[in-house]
Design a protein around this nucleic acid. Structure first.
Length: 749
RNA sequence: GGGCGGUUAGCUCAGUUGGUUAGAGCGCCACAUUGACAUUGUGGAGGUCAUAGGUUCAAUUCCUAUAUCGCCCACCA
């Protein structure tokens, strides 16, 4: 054996050994209990980060532990196509070559995306393997595999038949920049300094940050208890603006806060979610003045065609000139909705969209939850989950992007002549118009093959089908929200509804992920799982904290404090990285990355390596002297007090490790094994053995304890333990070739 | 605005239902060292457990306020 543990040499060898052994391929074995974890699929859009490394460390720990305990342990790998994220990354690449998605028809663009994503996928697989992840690659799944797509489409069809899906005009978060809708979960509010304009509407004055939407106003609203405005309620006020003389009703709604601004609110149902709600309550007209192109439309008179911000400026100038602008509060800050990834501004627009009625699905989940069919660890995260579930809105599942699974709804062009379509004409230029008109100039085939996007009115008739239902049908161009497919991930990967895997491995044992996607992902998997199978998709949810940078701040590229896990792997070894991450996360809280611990565990790996070297030497000496180390048994002759203490110490260790892992208290377990091996076994016991006369007994105990410790440590530090296991094969008292499939130490109570 | 979590050694963090001298890793100091390991060994210094009240025989632990940091949710235009 080398003098020191060399992780660079050992790691590739061990990975190969595990792969060749087939140990990670879970077998359907009725005599064993299944233990299943589905790997939260890393996005195919980029490389793994240190948070992914933590996830892998925890899940591999659980899987290896259960596998050694005799479960049929399945850890399912996969990759998510990450619709929006991948597409924006890819479009950024295109832009470097001065290209854009608008130059391609859907099919071509989709194929280009696929090539791009498959390239990234390979990189992620390599990283997962290098982490020592004992994943079952024979069951690998990608969200855009035919089987995945088929399952997703079947689910959609079932939901349509079940009246769980509807199309509606709805205020959605719409990004002009990316030309797509975002779900509420993809939106975050950013504090932004804005001008607050006080605009006269006849006798009343309204404070607003969006004067350009005034042409979409269909009421003014005041609080019903506001004494100042009682006499206006129920009347109409007259005023003049760029569109000429106007009349607008004044309504009373308790939503209005009379301490804000003037206490009068302009209600613009088409461009604000809250206004939309007020509009519904009071039966107000909904007037859109902004188009999906980000420009003012014909209803805004002379401002038509201007971009929103330009129009705002122009409107303000005109109001000022007309003396209708009372004042401007320049120091007003408010929360503006932005894309949570890019912080790009997101507009609120009324658009036709596909929705899931979440109410009944949610209720079914909560019923299971109350019966504790699914448990959340750590416990304090339960509140986050419950609150989200209670406040859940209907879910907009359509996205106006190409990269994803296309909604399987078909519109007849003859029945829906006023659908708006955009397609790439023969001359390579985009053509937009009502399909009824376009068909006079272009053939159906031209439109269908060049199709880029389609927007059917809410009232449009459609057929849901996996196949084209007939001539003259165009398929919906919206694709599903990524979470619509990844929400079915446990089902898809296990081959729902009738595969043998599904019958044996479902429901899965634990869903392990970061808390930040509990709302986007965990809740949706639960809804789909319960809806489709009547059972929760996993019994436990463990939420790990976020790994922060060394400086305790959130890692971000702009701060330059991002930790690349591969650097630590390279410097200190994968075992050390894994153990460092594991021991930093005791209770699911965010934690600063403990680099000093990584170094400590690198040293620990070396310690183990050298304990093995020492043992070899001692065994050698005994053999040279013509002796034999005795077979171990707990009540063998000649045991000294210290031997007995060590043995009982080990039994308590195993108990503690088991109990801690059952409760997902990983650092308790790692701490215990670390201290037992280093302080007890190495520092205390080995020093004692050195001076023992009865080496044949002492070494027997040492071997027993060391070999057992290797087993307990293996799920935490798989590389060094497996390597040492191989090195001491000649003196080991366990005939199992590989540690990964050795059996976990049994302890009696 | 509502909620959640943190505040413990120089740093990063444990501390499970309240119960003796509050722990770990790293760092620091002193010493040691050829039967494995300097990625070592032995020993040591270092904490008013954020603050103020309260409950209790007993509080880092439970309760109430306050301060401060972080996060989540949210319909103040």
């Amino acid at each position: 054996m080398d003098k020191a543990f060399n992780h660079k040499l050992v790691e590739p060898e061990m990975i190969k050994k595990w792969e060749d052994s087939g140990a990670c391929t879970a077998k359907i074995d009725p005599s064993k209990k299944p233990y299943t974890i589905v790997l939260p699929p890393p996005n195919a859009s980029g490389k793994m980060h240190v948070g992914n490394a933590l996830m892998v460390a925890i899940e591999d720990l659980l899987i290896r532990w259960k596998r050694m305990q005799g479960y049929s342990a399945l850890w399912l790998p996969g990759t998510d196509h990450a619709g929006f994220e991948s597409q924006t990354t890819f479009e950024r690449e295109l832009k470097k070559e001065n290209k854009s998605r608008f130059q391609y028809d859907r099919k071509t663009f989709y194929n280009m995306m696929m090539e791009f994503v498959l390239g990234n996928k390979h990189a992620i697989e390599t990283q997962l393997k290098n982490m020592g992840a004992s994943l079952d690659w024979s069951r690998y799944t990608f969200t855009l595999d035919d089987r995945s797509i088929s399952t997703v489409l079947d689910t959609f069809k079932k939901m349509v038949d079940d009246d769980k899906i509807y199309r509606a005009g709805y205020i959605v978060n719409y990004s002009f920049k990316y030309g797509t809708t975002f779900s509420d979960a993809e939106i975050t509010l950013k504090e932004t300094k804005q001008s607050l304009y006080y605009i006269k509407y006849g006798p009343l004055t309204v404070a607003t940050v969006r004067p350009e939407t005034k042409f979409g106003d269909t009421a003014l609203a005041v609080n019903p208890d506001d004494a100042r405005y009682q006499k206006y309620i129920g009347t109409e006020v007259e005023f003049e603006d760029a569109l000429g003389k106007q009349k607008i009703p004044v309504i009373a709604d308790s939503y209005v806060d009379f301490s804000f601004g003037t206490g009068v609110l302009k209600v613009t149902p088409a461009h604000d979610k809250n206004d939309y709600e007020i509009g519904l309550r009071h039966n107000l007209e909904v007037k859109s003045v902004i188009g999906v192109d980000g420009k003012m439309n014909a209803l805004s008179g002379k401002y038509a065609g201007m971009k929103v911000l330009d129009a705002r400026k122009a409107v303000v100038e005109d109001l000022q000139a007309a003396g209708l602008l009372e004042k401007i509060d320049e120091n007003y800050t408010s929360l503006v909705p932005v894309d949570y990834r890019t912080e790009d501004y997101v507009e609120q627009l009324l658009m036709p969209n596909w929705f899931v009625k979440t109410g009944p699905l949610r209720d079914a989940v909560m019923e299971k939850y109350k019966k504790q069919d699914v448990r959340i660890f750590p416990k304090w995260q339960e509140i986050t989950f419950e609150r989200w579930m209670e406040n859940m809105h209907d879910w907009a599942i359509s996205r106006q992007i190409v990269w994803g699974i296309r909604v399987p709804a078909w519109y007849s062009t003859t029945e829906n002549p006023d659908m708006t379509v955009t397609f790439l004409g023969s001359e390579g230029k985009g053509v937009t118009g009502k399909v009824g008109d376009l068909l006079k100039t272009y053939s159906f085939e031209q439109i269908e093959t060049g199709l880029q996007s389609l927007m059917a009115p809410i009232s449009a008739k459609y057929v849901v089908s996996k196949e084209k239902p007939g001539e003259n049908f165009l398929q919906e161009t919206d694709t599903f929200d990524t979470w619509f497919s990844s929400g079915q991930w446990p089902l898809i990967t296990l081959g729902y509804p009738d595969s043998e895997d599904f019958k044996y491995f479902y429901p899965t044992s634990v869903l392990e992920t970061g808390w930040e996607i509990i709302t986007r992902w965990v809740s949706r998997m639960l809804m789909f799982g319960v809806y489709l199978t009547g059972e929760v998709p996993f019994n436990d949810v463990y939420l790990h904290g976020r790994v922060m940078a060394v400086d305790g701040k959130k890692m971000s590229k702009s701060l330059g404090n991002v930790i690349n896990p591969e650097e630590y792997q390279d410097q200190y070894g994968t075992d050390a990285l894994r153990m460092g991450l594991i021991s930093g996360t005791a209770n699911g809280k965010d934690f600063a990355f403990p680099k000093d611990k990584v170094i400590a565990f690198r040293n620990f790996a070396n310690k183990i390596w050298n304990m093995a070297r020492f043992m070899e030497m001692m065994f050698d000496d005994v053999a040279k002297a013509g002796g034999t180390v005795k077979e171990f048994s707990a009540n063998m002759d000649g045991l000294q007090d210290m031997d007995k203490e060590m043995i009982s110490g080990f039994n308590s260790l195993v108990k503690l490790v088991n109990e801690s892992l059952e409760k997902y208290r990983f650092s308790d377990a790692s701490d215990a094994i670390y201290h037992y091996m280093w302080d007890e076994l190495a520092s205390k016991y080995i020093e004692n053995v050195k001076s023992r006369e009865d080496k044949e007994v002492a070494l027997s105990v040492l071997r027993q304890l060391f070999v057992s410790c290797l087993k307990v440590l293996h799920p935490f530090m798989p590389f060094v333990t497996e390597a040492v296991w191989g090195e001491i094969s000649a003196i080991r008292n366990d005939s199992e070739d590989l540690l990964i499939i050795a059996s976990w130490p049994q302890v009696e109570n």
